[in-house]
Design a protein around this nucleic acid. Structure first.
Lengths: 111, 111
DNA sequence: ATTTTAGGTAAGTACATACTTACGGTAAGT
DNA sequence: ACTTACCGTAAGTATGTACTTACCTAAAAT
């Protein structure tokens, strides 16, 4: 108990998948420092622009970024909510790890 | 600035990859609630025991779990440090997102 | 109006990976 | 000693995925 897994686990599954790829993680880290256009992002990476578009789509589906058209350019920005979802999930795990660790200590002391 | 990325990013890359797989995430969530043997873990999942062994190896390589032999059984347990590494990484990102958001607000106000 | 600029999508390919069964190896039970 | 329980590894396979080039649309510039 003291854990509501299964609810957010699926929600942040897409987030873990998104951040598992090094290129996408680099993209997201760049976007956390401020909004950028697709072309700007592509120039900072050793992959083609279409590849960046595909990665950004994954990040967008995971709820980590959002985009707004500005003329011919598409400006992407990091969403705060995405990181918070992951943080909440980690905190629930962290609590469980601590209680499990306490139980382990107790178990050791009984021996 | 106010960010030391690139150092922990690679370190938690393996963690993201490990938790990106739903089976491994389920395994880790189970282990956060207490230590289990490989066989016990396998019985709670719709995959074979060797598959569980391979997943546990990935989790172990990522620093998320550790194992200790107990007779013929291998007991796996979640490591606290693994979750903390990820939490620190997220906090650094979270800080950047907030400052970036503040900059965006300022930028909007100037228009 | 035509030409750039910016970017998403389609199709194809090479590689990664999650699974299976088969096997080997160690410790406990009889 | 021999069987049984428990588990890791090897080999093979099938699907997933990250990349490329080619193509198409939409808005700005000339």
């Amino acid at each position: 108990m003291a854990n509501l897994n299964g609810i957010e686990s699926d929600a942040c599954g897409a987030i873990f998948v998104a951040l598992a790829d090094p290129t996408r993680r680099k993209l997201f880290e760049t976007l956390t420092r401020g909004p950028r256009s697709v072309g700007d992002l592509a120039r900072t990476l050793p992959v083609s622009r279409p590849a960046v578009s595909q990665h950004l789509r994954h990040l967008s589906d995971a709820g980590l970024v959002q985009s707004t058209r500005k003329g011919t350019r598409n400006i992407y920005a990091a969403r705060q909510e995405g990181v918070e979802v992951l943080r909440r999930y980690l905190e629930s795990l962290w609590g469980d790890v601590l209680t499990a660790f306490a139980d382990k200590i107790d178990q050791e002391n009984l021996k």
